[in-house]
Simulated scan of single mutants.
Amino acid sequence: MTLLVFGKTGQVSTELGQLLEAVCLGRAEADLSDPAACAEAIKAANPSVVINAAAYTAVDRAEEEEDLATIINGDTPGKMATACAELGVPFVHISTDYVFDGQGKAPFAPDAETNPLGAYGRSKLKGEALVRASGATHAILRTSWVFSAHGNNFVKTMLRVSETRNELKVVDDQIGGPTSARSIARACLSLADQLGKAPGKSGTYHFSGAPDISWHGFATEIFAQAGKPMTIHAIPTSQYPTPAVRPGNSRMDCSSTQQQFGIAQPEWQADLAAVLEELNALG
Rank of each mutant, 00 (worst) to 15 (best):
A187F: 05
T237W: 00
L125K: 12
L141T: 09
E267N: 13
C84P: 09
Q259G: 05
R186A: 02
V275W: 08
A54N: 05
P90L: 03
S250W: 00
H93C: 09
F91V: 01
I72H: 05
A28Y: 00
D271V: 04
S180R: 04
H233S: 08
D193G: 14
V146K: 02
S33H: 12
I140W: 01
P107E: 02
I175M: 09
M252W: 06
V49F: 06
E15S: 09
V171T: 10
G118C: 14
V155T: 15
T179C: 13
G104I: 01
A28T: 06
I72G: 09
V99G: 07
I71S: 05
R61P: 00
K201W: 02
L141Y: 00
P90S: 10
L4Q: 08
Y240V: 13
R61C: 00
A219Q: 07
L189H: 06
A30H: 10
T231S: 15
R165F: 11
V5D: 12
S214H: 07
D97E: 13
H150D: 04
Q103K: 15
K8F: 07
S162Q: 09
T257F: 06
R122M: 00
L159R: 05
E40M: 12
T9I: 05
C254E: 05
M158I: 08
D111T: 10
E66M: 11
P35D: 09
Y240E: 11
